[in-house]
Amino acid sequence: MARRTHAEAARTRERILCAARTVFCATGYTGATLDDIAVAAGVTRGAVYGHFANKRELMAAVCASAVHAFEAIFAGDASAAPLEMLRQAARTLFERVASDPELRHVAAPLFKWGEAHGADIVRAQRRALSGRLREFASACLARACVPSSHVPMAAIAFEAFCFGVIENWLFEPGFDLGGQASALSAGALAVVAPYARDPVPGAVTAVAAACLSASRPMVYQTPGAGNAVPPAA
C-alpha cells in the first residue's frame, strides 16, 4: 500500500509540474496562480501545497526539470572522437527540440525570460543548463587539442550558438530546424574553429575536418512554410 501511495504521489507531482509549465508559459510567472495550476492539473490547491511550498518553489522545479531533460543529450557517445561527440550533441539537440513536443514544452520556460517577477528563478536554472553544456563542450574541446587557454571561450561560443538557434526558432520558426540539424551542427563546430588557431599540432585541422564532414547547404524559409516545424503551443 505504501509503495502504491508513493507512486501515486509521484504521478500527482508530475501532473502538477506539467500543468505549471503550461500555465507559466501561457500567463507568465506573475499572472499564474496556484489555483489556476491546480485546476489545470485536476487536483486540489492543497495537493499543490503538499508538493510545493509556494509558487517560487514550483517555478524552480519546472525549470529544473528542463535542465534534467537535456542532460542525456549532452552525454554524447563516449566511444566517438571528441569533435564528433560535440557535433552529434548539437545535431541531436536540434533534432530533438524540433521533433519532440514534450521536450519543447519542458524547455519553454528556460527560453522565455518573461517579466521581472520570477525571472531570477529562470536565470538561475538557465545558467545551470548553460553550465552543463559548457562542461560537456569543454571536455570535448580539451580532448580535441584545443589549447587549454582557449577552451572556456570556445565552449561559451558553442553554447551561445546552439541555444541561440533554439531560442530564435522557438520565437519564430522560419526554417526547418530538424531538417537543417546537420548543417547547423557544422555551424556549431565552425564557431569554435578560431579558438583552435594555436601552434598545437592537429587542432585546426581536426576542427576544420569535422566542420566539412558535417556541412551541407542551409535554406531559410518564411514563417509558416510547408516544411517548417512549429514549436508546441
Rank of each mutant, 00 (worst) to 15 (best):
R4M: 04
R4N: 07
T5K: 14
H6I: 05
A7N: 04
E8G: 11
E8L: 14
A9Q: 15
A10S: 11
A10G: 06
R11I: 02
T12E: 13
R13I: 05
I16F: 03
R21T: 03
T22F: 02
V23Q: 09
G28P: 10
G31S: 09
A32C: 09
L34D: 11
V39T: 15
V39C: 10
A40N: 13
A41H: 08
G42S: 10
V43Q: 10
R45Q: 12
R45N: 11
F52E: 10
A53Y: 03
N54H: 15
K55W: 03
R56S: 15
M59F: 08
A61L: 04
C63Y: 08
A64F: 01
A66M: 09
V67H: 02
V67E: 07
A72E: 13
A75S: 08
G76H: 08
D77R: 07
S79Q: 14
S79L: 10
A80P: 03
A80W: 04
A81W: 02
L83D: 04
M85S: 02
M85I: 00
R91D: 04
T92L: 14
T92A: 15
L93P: 01
A98N: 08
L103I: 14
R104P: 03
V106F: 00
A108S: 07
L110I: 09
W113P: 12
E115K: 15
A116F: 13
G118H: 06
G118F: 02
D120A: 15
A128G: 08
G131S: 07
R134N: 07
R134F: 00
E135Y: 08
E135P: 06
E135M: 12
A137I: 05
S138H: 02
S138F: 01
A139C: 01
L141E: 04
V146T: 13
V146G: 03
S148Y: 02
M153S: 08
A157Q: 11
C162V: 08
F163G: 06
F163Q: 10
F163T: 09
V165N: 02
L177A: 03
A181V: 00
S182W: 00
L184R: 09
S185Q: 05
G187M: 04
A188F: 02
V192N: 05
V192M: 04
P194W: 10
Y195E: 00
R197L: 08
R197Y: 11
D198L: 02
D198Y: 11
D198C: 14
P199H: 02
P199A: 01
P201Y: 01
P201K: 03
G202I: 00
A203M: 00
V207H: 05
A208F: 01
A210H: 00
S213H: 12
R216K: 14
R216Q: 12
M218S: 09
V219F: 06
Y220P: 13
T222P: 05
P223C: 12
P230C: 07
P231C: 11
